[in-house]
C-alpha cells in the first residue's frame, strides 16, 4: 500500500513537471548552467522527502567542487605570487648579478627568504614519518602562538571595550528622544542581569536570585528573537531558490 502511494506521488510529480514544462516551453531557460543549477537545487530539496542517492550526489559534489575551488584559488593567489614568482626572480637575479643581501629582503620581488616558511610548512608532512611526527608541532606552534597573541589585544579593542562603551548610560542618552534613554537603561539592566545568570561562583540567593531571574527573561526573549530572525533568514534563502526556479528557469515570474 505504502509503495503504491509512493509510486503515485512520483507519477504525480512527473505529470506536474510535464504540464509545467509544456505550459512554459516558450519561456523556459536555454542556459545549460541554469539547468545545472535547477538539477542541484532539486537534488538538495529532495532531502525533504527522505535521504536519497541524488541528495548524496549533491552533498559529495559540494565537497569536491569547494575543495577544488580553494586549491585553485590558493595556487593563483598564494603559491604563484608569494612562492614561485619571488623564487624564479631570485634565481634569475642570482644568475645575473651573483649573490647579494638583497636576495634576503622579504619585501624584494626577488628573494629566497620565502624558503624559510616553505621549509616550516613542509614539517606538516612529518606526521607521516613516525620517528619525526612530533615536528608537526612546530608549524602549529608558530601559527597558534602568533594568532593567539594577536587575538588578546584584538578581543579587548574589538569586543570588550566597544560593547562596554555601548552599554554605558550617560546623560546624553536622554538628550534626544527620552525613550531611547529608557531603552538604554533596559539594555544595561539586561546585560548586568544576564551576566548574573551565567555567574556560577556564588549560589543564586537573595539579590543574586532576582537578578538571575530577570536575566533569564532577557535570555529567553533574546533566544526567541534570534530563532525567529534565523528562520526568516533561511526562509528568504528558500524564497530565493524558488525565485530562481520560477524566474530564471521557467520564466513564469518576472
Amino acid at each position: 500500500m505504502r509503495g503504491n502511494v509512493r509510486y503515485l506521488a512520483w507519477a504525480g510529480v512527473v505529470v506536474a513537471l510535464g504540464i509545467l514544462f509544456y505550459s512554459t516551453r516558450s519561456t523556459i531557460s536555454h542556459d545549460p548552467w541554469t539547468w545545472v543549477g535547477v538539477f542541484l537545487t532539486v537534488a538538495v530539496f529532495s532531502f525533504l522527502y527522505r535521504e536519497n542517492r541524488i541528495y548524496r550526489f549533491a552533498e559529495h559534489l559540494v565537497v569536491g567542487v569547494a575543495n577544488g575551488y580553494s586549491i585553485s584559488f590558493t595556487v593563483h593567489r598564494v603559491i604563484v605570487p608569494y612562492v614561485i614568482k619571488p623564487l624564479s626572480a631570485g634565481f634569475k637575479a642570482l644568475a645575473a648579478d651573483g649573490p647579494s643581501l638583497k636576495l634576503l629582503d622579504p619585501n624584494s620581488s626577488a628573494n629566497f627568504i620565502i624558503l624559510v616558511p616553505l621549509a616550516i610548512g613542509l614539517l606538516y608532512f612529518a606526521r607521516f614519518i613516525p620517528k619525526y611526527a612530533w615536528l608537526v608541532r612546530i608549524p602549529m606552534a608558530i601559527f597558534m602562538g602568533y594568532y593567539t597573541g594577536q587575538t588578546v589585544p584584538a578581543a579587548f579593542t574589538g569586543v570588550v571595550f566597544p560593547q562596554l562603551k555601548a552599554t554605558l548610560v550617560t546623560q546624553a542618552s536622554f538628550g534626544g528622544d527620552p525613550w531611547l534613554g529608557v531603552w538604554k537603561v533596559l539594555v544595561l539592566v539586561g546585560v548586568l542581569t544576564t551576566l548574573t545568570y551565567f555567574f556560577f561562583s556564588r549560589e543564586h540567593k537573595g539579590v543574586l536570585k532576582w537578578s538571575a531571574k530577570t536575566g533569564i527573561i532577557y535570555v529567553m526573549v533574546g533566544f526567541g528573537a534570534s530563532f525567529g530572525f534565523t528562520v526568516m533568514a533561511r526562509i528568504s534563502l528558500a524564497i530565493g531558490r524558488f525565485y530562481f526556479l520560477f524566474r530564471d528557469w521557467l520564466g513564469i515570474l518576472h
Binding site: 602562538g145 588578546v152 539586561g190
Partner: peptide, 28 residues
C-alpha cells in the same frame, strides 16, 4: 531585536570573549 535581544547577546558575547581570553592566556 534592539533592546532585550541586544542586552542578552551582549552579555553572552562579553562572557564568551572573556572565556576565550582566559583560554588564550592559558595557552600562551
Amino acid at each position: 531585536m534592539q533592546v532585550p535581544n541586544t542586552a542578552s547577546k551582549r552579555a553572552i558575547e562579553l562572557g564568551l570573549t572573556l572565556g576565550v581570553l582566559g583560554t588564550m592566556l592559558k595557552i600562551l
